[in-house]
Amino acid sequence: MNLEISKTANLPTEYGNLKIKSFKEGIKEHLVVFTDTLPTIPTVRIHSECLTGDVFKSKKCDCGEQLDYALKQISKDGGMVIYLRQEGRGIGLLNKVNAYHLQDFGHDTMKANELLGFKQDYRDYKIVDEILQHFNIEKINLMTNNPLKLNALEKTKIERRVPIVMNSCKYNYEYLEVKKEKMGHLL
């Protein structure tokens, strides 16, 4: 894999003083936010970009809440968030907004993607092993509810899964049900 890797920089945040590093894979630029000291087996969150949830705090999903929770946990316990640039389960922002439009008419997230001609998930996690190798990390505690992430790593051992429990609301209840019932998320 041909990667361009940035220098490490300081990132003072509301969660504490963290570090940041970017990994460029083709045209995609991924980000790693991490604590200055990493435990032998760090807690790692693999987070796929969700502009609507992460930045605008949309209640249609739980992405922003999961990111916030993960940043709080790694700041407290030591670890990292690997922020992958694969918006809308890999279909991109424009298509995600079109899927949102279909959801406004009663289609669930999977059906909306299908009506737009997409499968349920195009995300790829291969770069995660490369990122973890760069940091000389062989074992992690993976903060996830997504079974695809549990099976995605080939070079890194997952010691344990750390669940992320978020509250549902009237706007994301069906979304979370689809994740659980149709995508096998461990909720």
Score class of each variant (00 low, 15 high):
G79E: 06
N95M: 14
C61S: 07
G53K: 14
M110A: 14
D68I: 04
S58D: 02
N98K: 15
G90F: 12
G78D: 13
D68C: 08
V55N: 01
D104G: 08
H101Q: 10
N113K: 07
T52R: 13
R85S: 02
G79V: 14
K76P: 12
Y100M: 00
C61K: 08
Y69R: 15
E114P: 09
D68V: 09
L51F: 12
E87P: 09
G88H: 06
S58F: 01
R89V: 12
E65R: 01
E114D: 10
R85T: 02
G92I: 14
K59I: 07
Y83M: 03
S75C: 05
N95C: 09
D62Q: 02
G88M: 02
G106R: 00
Y83W: 02
M110F: 15
K57W: 01
K72W: 12
V81M: 07
G64N: 07
L93H: 05
G90K: 13
V97E: 04
L67S: 11
V55Q: 00
L84W: 01
D54T: 10
E87M: 04
H107Y: 04
V55A: 08
E114R: 11
G92L: 13
N113A: 00
S58H: 00
L94E: 14
Q73M: 05
K59T: 15
L71E: 07
L71P: 04
L84D: 06
F105N: 01
K111H: 12
G79R: 11
N113F: 08
C50A: 11
F56T: 03
N113R: 01
A70M: 10
Q86T: 09
K59Q: 15
K59L: 07
M80T: 12
Q103I: 00
G79F: 08
F56C: 03
K96L: 04
D104V: 06
N113V: 04
T52I: 12
A99P: 05
N113D: 07
V81T: 13
C63T: 09
K96G: 06
V55T: 05
G64P: 09
A99T: 04
K96S: 04
K60I: 11
I91Y: 10
S58K: 01
T109V: 02
C61P: 05
L51S: 03
K111E: 15
R85C: 05
K76M: 15
C50P: 05
R85A: 03
Y83S: 05
G90L: 07
I74M: 00
G64Q: 00
D104H: 02
N95H: 13
V81W: 12
K57Q: 10
D108C: 04
Y69L: 14
D54M: 10
Q86P: 00
D54R: 03
H101K: 13
R85P: 00
N95A: 12
Q66T: 03
C63L: 10
A99M: 02
N113M: 06
M110K: 15
E65Y: 13
K72C: 09
A99W: 03
N95K: 09
M110T: 15
L102P: 02
Y83I: 02
K59P: 08
D54N: 11
G53S: 09
D104Y: 06
K76E: 15
M80K: 14
F105L: 01
G92E: 15
Q66Y: 04
V97S: 10
K96E: 02
G88C: 05
G78T: 13
K72G: 12
D62A: 02
R89W: 10
G88K: 05
E114C: 07
A112K: 05
K57R: 13
A70T: 00
E114G: 10
L102R: 06
K60Q: 12
Y69C: 13
N113P: 02
